[in-house]
């Protein structure tokens, strides 16, 4: 007989800086590599998504009005916290059938990705903004500004690295986001939420839900208060893509499809930051 009964973690969602269960009360089973049940995850409903949008909208303005430098600091802080909990994440990736060394590599690449984008926080405006020559007496300049609230699917593969590679380019530019975690293996996403929670990220900037893409895709792409939708599925059915585009057309949502096959080979990419930016051009009169 075992000395004690192991205490298993309840995996909840992360919305508005809190860890609520789904309002629907539903859950689904998460299986390990040998088809054994390793945990239960929340099967979020459209109402959970709706609540997350409210949280994301509420947080977006405050997040954007922080200085770019401060956003960089906070991203760096996430990386620091993740570094401290490296072992936990390596252990959490193993039941998925990921080899120890590969798991360690995935966690380390994740940390490096955060550091990489943290550096871009106060640089992308300079690099991608411009001063434009015009024929009149105007000082004319274009600067990127955040699109707003972004909903996104985290990739099915690489449950941690993929997730972070999707979240970071969105939030570094002052957007807030609602992410649906990997459906098959959502556990590291919720553990990552704990890291976010303890690293100065204001509540509501990142919201993480778990559940079924099939069920939520229509709501995530049609919601009128969401400004962009980001997904990275390598293969997309034509009908499915059409449905997403039609939903998005309701409020001219930006659809960003960035197919990635293998996240461990994926290059860090500042252009991904600009996908969630709108260029604003200002004409400022100058004297003679």
């Amino acid at each position: 007989m075992a000395d004690r009964i192991n205490v298993l973690k309840t995996y909840k969602t992360y919305v508005g800086g809190k860890f609520p269960r789904t309002e629907s009360g539903r859950h689904y089973k998460v299986y390990g590599k040998d088809e054994e049940v390793i945990a239960n995850a929340c099967q979020c409903s459209r109402k959970d998504f709706r609540d997350a949008v409210v949280a994301a909208r509420g947080a977006q303005n405050g997040w954007n009005s922080r200085s770019a430098y401060n956003r960089g600091q906070i991203l760096y802080r996430i990386a620091e916290m993740l570094e401290g909990r490296k072992t936990q994440f390596v252990e959490e990736l193993k039941p998925l059938g990921i080899h120890h060394r590969t798991a360690q590599k995935e966690v380390e690449t994740t940390i490096d990705t955060l550091i990489y984008y943290a550096g871009w926080a106060d640089k992308y405006q300079q690099v991608f903004g411009s001063i434009n020559p015009v024929a009149s007496n105007h000082f004319n300049f274009s600067i990127p500004e955040p699109t707003g609230v972004v909903s996104a699917f985290a990739p099915e593969e690489s449950p941690l690295l993929g997730l972070v590679s999707v979240i970071t380019p969105i939030i570094v530019g002052g957007n807030s986001c609602i992410i649906l975690a990997s459906q098959r293996y959502p556990l590291p996403a919720i553990s990552f939420a704990e890291v976010l929670h303890s690293s100065d990220v204001p509540g509501g900037v990142v919201n993480i839900l778990t559940g079924f893409k099939e069920e939520l895709v229509d709501h995530m792409t049609s919601h009128m208060d969401v400004n962009a939708f980001f997904f990275t599925d390598p293969k997309v059915n034509k009908e499915y893509r059409k449905q997403i585009d039609e939903n998005a057309a309701l409020n001219v949502k930006r659809i960003v499809h960035h197919p990635v096959n293998d996240w461990s080979q994926h290059q860090e990419d500042p252009y991904l930051v600009t996908k969630f930016q709108e260029i604003k051009t200002t004409w400022h009169p100058v004297g003679f």
Partner: peptide
């Protein structure tokens, strides 16, 4: 059937 936003 579509969630609305205050912009509209």
């Amino acid at each position: 059937g579509v969630y609305q936003g205050p912009d509209y």
